[in-house]
């Protein structure tokens, strides 16, 4: 109703302003009045028809109870009421000793952004990245450390190792260069010697690897932490029939995180598989590969390797028998 009255006033204003002509204004007035009457009619009809059956107090009471109860039920079902906020800044403000490695890495990164010339920071970051499986980042961190502090056997070996991990365990040429330089600086650098040996195995120079590792063990202190693992590998290299790289032996492996170790094993296995693809006529190699796949829980790969080996040694009864044994000893 109010609207139509306003519209009528509007018509008058328009007329006054000369926006519309008198004849137009007249007909507009008639039309609005007609609508106004209709609206008044409708209002009359609807007035007095209202009824009130529900008690307002009852409705209000029901709402006041139902809303909190319903929302609380849903919230308790979906929410985590006991979990406080964990804003980033507050978590980082905790004492260093309580911070997990991820947080420490962030802190060091933050620090290095402000002061990228801090050699110590990069040296801390390198191994931490390896723990986080950020191998390429680790290699980059060692790049920085070498750029700032110069080449040392330890830094070179660490960078090479990061590169090996980044390449899924393959001793890539750049890594090999690093290891070679490292042993030139310090022939007793164990990691460099170890990976150079791996590289030689990848090249098919088993003898050279054996000699290298033997020399390394001979010159090492009796209590070197990496000693048992390299001795195990050496034993396997000298006697291929010995059990393959099984989890317990590798478990003694040096100061590596489980993930890194897994990665290393997979890399070694990959290298073996690649070599067998090129030179398949090596029954011991095949058996080792099949066993390794078995231990790693890679059944399809183990079976594929088994099939390939059977094909290679199709006419060789002795070899086939050994392959049968290997198949039977695979974990089901």
């Amino acid at each position: 109703m109010a609207l139509y009255r306003d519209q009528l006033a509007e018509v008058e204003r328009d007329l006054e302003r000369g926006v519309i002509e008198p004849a137009e204004a007249e007909s507009a007035r008639v039309e609005v009045s007609r609508r106004l009457l209709a609206a008044a009619d409708a209002q009359e009809k609807s007035a007095g028809a209202g009824r009130q059956v529900l008690s307002r107090k009852a409705v209000a009471g029901a709402i006041v109870v139902a809303v909190p109860v319903l929302s609380l039920v849903i919230y308790l079902g979906l929410g985590s009421p006991g979990l406080p906020d964990q804003p980033f800044a507050a978590r980082m403000a905790a004492p260093v000793s309580q911070l997990p490695i991820d947080a420490l890495v962030l802190r060091v990164e933050e620090h290095l952004k402000a002061d990228p010339k801090d050699l110590r920071g990069w040296e801390v970051l390198g191994p931490a990245y390896i723990r986080q499986q950020r191998y390429q980042d680790a290699a980059n961190a060692w790049d920085q450390a070498i750029a700032l502090g110069g080449e040392t056997a330890l830094r070179l070996a660490a960078r090479g190792e990061a590169e090996v991990f980044a390449a899924n365990g393959v001793v890539v040429p750049t890594a090999r260069e690093d290891f070679t330089k490292a042993v030139a600086l310090d022939p007793h650098e164990p990691r460099a010697q170890y990976y150079l040996g791996i590289a030689e195995i990848e090249d098919g120079k088993k003898g050279a690897a054996i000699a290298r590792w033997k020399a390394l063990i001979a010159s090492a202190p009796q209590d070197a932490p990496w000693r048992p693992s390299i001795e195990g590998e050496l034993a396997r290299l000298e006697n291929p029939n010995a059990p393959g790289p099984d989890a317990s032996q590798i478990g003694a492996a040096a100061d590596m995180s489980p993930e890194a170790r897994q990665k290393m094993i997979e890399g070694m296995v990959g290298g073996l598989a690649a070599r067998l693809d090129k030179a398949p006529n090596d029954i011991d190699g095949w058996l080792r590969l099949i066993r390794a796949y078995g231990v790693l829980g890679k059944k399809p790969e183990a079976e594929a390797a088994l099939a390939k080996a059977r094909k290679t040694f199709a006419g060789d009864a002795a070899a086939t028998a050994r392959l049968d044994d290997a198949e039977n000893s695979l974990p089901k």
Partner: peptide, 12 residues
């Protein structure tokens, strides 16, 4: 968590 609860309350 208050935000979460506010959302369930809004639903009701």
């Amino acid at each position: 968590e208050l935000g979460h609860f506010a959302l369930t309350l809004a639903f009701a």
